[in-house]
Design a binder for these strands. Structure first.
Lengths: 245, 245
DNA sequence: ACAAAAGTGTTAAGAATACACCCATGT
DNA sequence: ACATGGGTGTATTCTTAACACTTTTGT
């Protein structure tokens, strides 16, 4: 009975969605979420992938994602599915934002799916494996394996968004430790842009933006002069006075 | 029987979405689309609104929008609902792009709805009224009536997107006629930014971008010197070499 | 002493800003 | 002739881009 009631509620929900073109009843599209989670690994921009446990695309690498249910926001849904499949909570990220909603009818072989993609960034993210995780791991974006669905396109979209985001906001903070050297900062930009920047110009310009401040700490890191550590004035996303690069 | 079969298919669709947290069955969220359609009216940025025919928010002004069904892309859905409720096809727009997906659980009083918002721009758009249209009209964004749902927030989001879009792309073309004067171009920027620009600097900079070319035509428009007409080299969205303003 | 990365300044070219008058037309 | 909006240039400041050597440390 309780079940019957719920199914009736489903019917009500569907009935609202029904659209009578050509007198045919339509079902609502399935809503899924997908996460593009970046971090810097060995000075390379890398993205979190899992290995699909089931068909379709069983065995292929894919972004962590899953079905959304009514009553949870898509962000809550995202947290649930990344925790389950990739062993990490989006709360451990320093930045998470909605990217784009991908909706080609033929996208998912099982039927029409609307996928709301999010982009997240963090530092020193380590997936915690469990019975439900599917071999999560980070893969450099410039050398990705074959991917399920249209996930290669989604990753490219996220990478493009991140590239432009770091030019007009302080979004790099999300890929760095709280304290970092100017070289680490520059290498993060270079990893995302995929090209080298001039050291003197980079430092001059970045310091002039007033986003970061020097600390009195130094990082000793081998047989060379120690590097001064800097920190962001704000760990929240802010727009730059003038855009970068 | 045919109906029973379809409902079964619905169940299958829902069953895929069911998520058993706390052993409760969940229904998928409802997917809707909303259109933020801009045009310049009397040198003011204006947005297309309809008057809601039904509850909730019956009688209030709202963005045209409606339920998405499986088997159509969200853009196809958008075209269908704007044609029905506002009497215009999105094909009559010079620009249409997906904005953001709004998904707060409490957004729609009827239940959890995920709304995929699109932004469109055009010139000389005239809604064609029919039995299904709901008093469509354009309202200046700086003087909007009370709006249903969270549509005020969606319009602000679209306006912000448009403001930044015209600084790093040639997107203004979508709000202008094929041939236009530099004053019209400047007024379009001013209407979107909500502030005045210097005439000489504006012209110098815009012409230096190489996006438009002068024609040999002039627009005579009253008791003053006729204005030269210009045209965009491309009517497709392109990025600017350096950003504007 | 040497290897390795950190740190630092100048010059030249280009872009942004501020600002005021003459031009062509219709009445 | 006058009212109206169209059209134009210069000087200053700021920003960008190109470019090479010295400093500090560990071995």
């Amino acid at each position: 009975m309780a079940h019957a009631l719920r199914y009736e509620q489903c019917f009500v929900a569907i009935a609202r969605c029904v659209y009578n073109k050509n007198m045919k009843a339509y079902v609502p599209p399935i809503v899924t979420v997908d996460a593009v989670i970046f971090q810097i690994v060995n000075n390379r921009l890398s993205v979190l992938l899992i290995e699909r446990a089931n068909d379709p695309f069983k065995g292929a690498m894919a972004l962590p994602g899953g079905y959304s249910a009514a009553g949870e926001t898509t962000k809550e849904c995202l947290d649930r599915v990344t925790a389950k499949k990739a062993g990490l909570s989006i709360n451990s990220l320093k930045l998470i934002e909605q990217l784009y909603t991908f909706d080609t009818v033929a996208r998912d072989p099982r039927g029409h799916a609307v996928s709301i993609a999010y982009m997240g960034c963090g530092k020193d993210i380590v997936p915690i494996e469990s019975k439900t995780t599917q071999s999560p791991g980070f893969y450099p974006v410039d050398n990705l394996p074959a991917l399920a669905y249209d996930h290669a396109k989604i990753i490219k979209y996220a990478h493009d968004r991140l590239s432009s985001k770091i030019t007009y906001t302080n979004a790099v903070f999300s890929l760095l430790d709280q304290f970092f050297t100017l070289t680490q900062l520059q290498q993060t930009y270079e990893a995302i842009f995929g090209r080298e920047l001039d050291k003197r110009n980079f430092r001059k310009k970045f310091l002039s933006l007033g986003l970061i401040r020097a600390t009195n700490e130094y990082q000793k890191d081998g047989a060379h002069r120690p590097a001064r550590l800097y920190t962001f004035n704000s760990q929240k996303l802010e727009s730059l006075a003038r855009s970068f690069d």
